[in-house]
Amino acid sequence: MNAVTASVEREADRLTELDSPIGDADHGSNLLRGFLAVRAALEAQPPSSPGAVLQLAGRTLIGVVGGASGPLYGTLLRRTGKELGDAAEVSDEELRKALYAGVGAVAQLGGAAPGDKTMLDALVPGVGALSTSYRAAAVAAESGALATVPLQARKGRASYLGERSIGHQDPGATSAALLLAALADTAEAVDAP
């Protein structure tokens, strides 16, 4: 979560720029506020397991972030954390399965699917590539975010623009790619000799 927060801190302005033509121009600032609150919550009450970390992060995002981002990211993290349970350590495979459940919960909440120009366009291929490696997941998520440029939004705020949403990279897919890149960076740092 600290790596995600640092990434959002670096990229908040870019996320807001991406959101300006097709959204409310607040995606970066909302996520920054939310993940700074997550960092503070985790420091104030350090959870005892990976699942508890994700559940606390999810609850915090839902409580702090307005718009769709808070409930969607909050659902992703809470559901993933719930799937992990109270185990003190989780395997790569357990995390992958838990993230699949989290992505499924996001799809259900938002009523979206890949190709709708949403965060799912990065999350679905990213989580799908986790069976290869964390870096493959990050690359797949980034490719998914970039692939939203020619799409017409069918869900979310951008869908109100119809064809005018074509030609813009989806900010939610972009921030989802940041999340998976932070996961890859953290995994690589842990595995480094």
Rank of each mutant, 00 (worst) to 15 (best):
E11C: 11
E11W: 10
E11Q: 15
A12T: 11
A12R: 14
A12P: 12
A12L: 09
A12S: 15
A12K: 11
A12F: 10
D13E: 15
D13K: 14
D13V: 13
R14E: 14
R14D: 12
R14L: 13
R14V: 09
R14Y: 07
R14G: 04
R14C: 04
L15Q: 06
L15I: 08
L15C: 10
T16H: 10
T16I: 04
T16V: 07
T16S: 14
E17F: 03
L18H: 06
L18R: 08
L18A: 02
L18G: 06
L18S: 03
L18I: 05
D19L: 08
D19R: 01
S20N: 04
S20C: 06
S20P: 02
S20A: 15
S20I: 03
S20F: 03
S20M: 14
P21F: 11
P21H: 08
P21N: 08
P21T: 02
I22D: 09
I22V: 15
I22A: 03
G23P: 05
G23I: 11
G23V: 08
G23Y: 06
D24P: 13
D24C: 12
D24F: 03
D24V: 05
D24G: 12
A25M: 02
A25L: 04
D26I: 06
D26G: 12
H27D: 05
H27R: 07
H27F: 09
H27T: 12
G28D: 04
G28S: 05
G28Q: 03
S29V: 13
S29K: 13
S29M: 09
S29A: 11
S29P: 00
N30R: 08
N30W: 03
N30F: 04
L31E: 10
L31A: 05
L31R: 06
L31C: 06
L32A: 09
L32M: 14
L32Y: 10
R33D: 01
R33Q: 08
R33K: 15
G34V: 00
G34W: 04
G34P: 11
G34N: 06
F35I: 05
F35Y: 15
F35P: 14
L36N: 15
L36Q: 15
L36I: 02
L36G: 08
L36K: 15
L36E: 15
A37K: 04
A37G: 00
A37V: 04
A37C: 03
A37E: 02
A37N: 01
A37D: 04
A37F: 00
V38G: 03
V38I: 10
V38C: 08
V38Y: 04
R39S: 13
R39L: 00
R39F: 01
R39C: 00
R39Q: 14
R39A: 09
R39V: 01
R39M: 00
A40Q: 14
A40S: 12
A40T: 14
A40H: 03
A40D: 15
A41N: 05
L42Y: 10
L42P: 12
L42R: 08
L42N: 13
L42G: 08
L42W: 09
E43S: 13
E43I: 07
E43H: 12
E43P: 04
E43A: 15
A44D: 11
A44V: 01
A44W: 02
A44G: 14
A44E: 11
A44K: 06
A44Y: 00
Q45I: 02
Q45H: 14
Q45P: 00
Q45A: 14
P46G: 11
P46D: 07
P46F: 07
P46L: 12
P46N: 07
